[in-house]
Design a protein around this nucleic acid. Sequence first.
DNA 1: TAGATTGTTAATCGATTAACAATC
DNA 2: TAGATTGTTAATCGATTAACAATC
Lengths: 211, 211
Amino acid sequence: MEKHKNISMAVIKRLPKYHRYLEELMKNEVDRISSKELGEKIGFTASQIRQDLNCFGDFGQQGYGYNVKELYTQISAILGLDRGYEAALVGAGNIGQAVSNYSRFENLGFKITAIFDANPKLIGMKIRDVEIMDIDEMESVLEEHKIDIGIICVPRKNAQVVADELIRGGVRAIWNFAPVDLVVPDHVKVENVHLSESLLTLIYLLNESES
Amino acid sequence: MEKHKNISMAVIKRLPKYHRYLEELMKNEVDRISSKELGEKIGFTASQIRQDLNCFGDFGQQGYGYNVKELYTQISAILGLDRGYEAALVGAGNIGQAVSNYSRFENLGFKITAIFDANPKLIGMKIRDVEIMDIDEMESVLEEHKIDIGIICVPRKNAQVVADELIRGGVRAIWNFAPVDLVVPDHVKVENVHLSESLLTLIYLLNESES
DNA sequence: TAGATTGTTAATCGATTAACAATC
DNA sequence: TAGATTGTTAATCGATTAACAATC
């Protein structure tokens, strides 16, 4: 399976969508699907789907299409969902609490096992059985505990410092909810959830269609 | 200013980023900036920045660059931030509450003026002075009150129904936090915040860089 | 076998980058 | 004026779509 190299971002960003639609098809007990049918569901061209999937392997069968269950398993493996992930969340404010409480992630093998905040009022509180710790303890916790993913939900001005600290603690992937572009070394991956940018895009589109 | 047509999504998605960086430059009291300097800050090529901006007008001056304040004003206007927006949020669970509480939006002229939920325990509670109303009242509230943007924070299975209801009530833009792709008529714009997809992308990148 | 649908190559389309004359 | 930097056209690069032989 060494096809795996130099996959474009465009393709990568579509993988989770395939995953979601295949999960749904499985739930509806659909056994097979052609690229044409899947394309109609998902809103892609059949051609694009075949191109995308062929970046990773030959999952289909001529004259038949794709076996839903098998393809789902394959995509899950490609995404890396065949193992679990431990995350540490920093910043237990509005968004931090929402993310901590979001149960949908657990099906994906994703677990938040540590939560940090600087606010004394929050420290000691529990979110889904995980106690909020003092951010000063983060360094030592990261040392004794292997964390895959850091989640940054702190105010903008603290985000970079927290990122640096997470990286020093061995974190290789950062899910960033703060409205900044973090500066990180090459071996660290960042995925941003920039809510304001998303909202501004929507506002632009709203006005565009009205004018 | 009728250059405004047929702007590609790639460009539109970059506009909020320009807005953010220009805001920061203004705060730092920078008067002028060249496409080269801005590019270095923001991580785009100078060429791309000039191309992007020229979709909307001639904002620069040869030999000088761009006036930060003026460009910021222009980008704000392009994004539609020269007026205010009223939003209705549906689903006051984890994410709904986080979004309701997110104060950063108010600087953008964006205000959540109505919140709905189906849960009797939540109805009557207040979030930032806005009372959570019974979702059954939504139809009448939308009738008497002009709402620009609907925010969907309900569970997946209810999202499409809520979207339909918002659209019937005259909403033209939907900010969707539910993990579904909504089906809407052409004149309605949807911007998705798909947290699971974002997380899966990050997990993929994490594994890619490790292998 | 015949029909369907894949994997893959080639053609097209769109977005990014480079180059440079215009000009402040 | 000379240097700097734009706006814009042309070249390149990459992503999407179309086409079709291979084959289940």
